[in-house]
Computed example of a mutant assay.
Amino acid sequence: MDEQKAGTPIAIHLQTEIKQDDDITSYKLDVQGRLVQMGQTIYIRYVEQDPESDYQPVPVTMKLSANGDVQLTRSAENRLRLLFKAGKRIRAQYQTPFGSIPVETVTPLLDVSFRDRPFGGNVKIDYNLYANGELVGDYKIRLQFTA
C-alpha cells in the first residue's frame, strides 16, 4: 500500500460536550489515528472505543475540505454522516437497523487550523442537532492532532 493511501500516523486528542436539556455529558479520547491527504482535502481517521462500555468500536472519519467545510462520518451499526458549514442548516440521515431518521445540523462555530512543525491542527465545531424539527442537543467537538 502506498503512503498516500496508508496515511501518516497521528496522535489525536478529542473532547466532546453534549448538552441535552439541563444535562451535560463530556467525553475525552486520546487515540492513534491516520491522516490521509488527497489533493486539498485532508481525512482524519480513527476508532472510538470506550473501554468502560460494551459498545463495539466505531470507525470515524473527519473530512476537512479546502473550502472550510467539515464532514463527520461514524460507520458502525448506526451510520451517521454530518456535514458542517459555518452558519448553515444542513440535512442528513441517521441510518439505524430500524430505518433512516432525518436529522439537521446548525453550525454556529466551525474553525479548522493547521501548523507546520510538527504538522498538526485543531478542529473546533459547535453544532445544534435536530431530529423531526426538535432540538436533540447542543454539541461541541474539539479535536487536536499531531503527526
Rank of each mutant, 00 (worst) to 15 (best):
Q93P: 01
N67M: 00
R89I: 13
V106D: 06
V106R: 09
V106E: 13
L29M: 11
K19E: 15
E77I: 12
E52C: 01
K63Y: 03
I44A: 00
R89V: 14
N128D: 15
G133N: 05
D22T: 15
F145Y: 13
Q93L: 13
I24Q: 10
T146V: 14
Q20N: 11
L29G: 04
P108L: 02
T61Y: 03
T107I: 07
V47H: 02
S113R: 12
K5V: 14
E17G: 12
K140W: 13
L64N: 04
Q93Y: 08
R117M: 05
K88P: 02
E48N: 02
A86D: 13
E17C: 07
P57D: 08
I12L: 09
R142A: 09
Q71P: 02
Q15P: 00
R45N: 09
S75K: 07
Q95G: 00
Q20L: 00
R142S: 09
T25L: 10
T73K: 09
K19H: 15
T16D: 06
G137T: 13
M38E: 13
T16H: 10
R89N: 07
T16A: 05
Y27F: 15
T61R: 10
E52L: 08
Q95E: 12
E104G: 02
A76T: 08
F114W: 10
L82P: 10
I125N: 04
Q37K: 13
L82R: 03
Y94R: 06
G68L: 06
T25Q: 14
D116M: 07
E48F: 06
V60E: 01
K88H: 14
I44Y: 04
Y127R: 00
I141E: 01
Y55F: 12
K19L: 14
G133M: 04
I125E: 01
T107A: 05
G121T: 11
T105W: 10
A76I: 04
D126W: 10
Q144E: 14
G39L: 06
N132M: 06
Q32A: 11
L72M: 11
Q40H: 11
I44M: 03
I24K: 11
Y130W: 05
A147K: 11
Q32K: 13
F98Y: 15
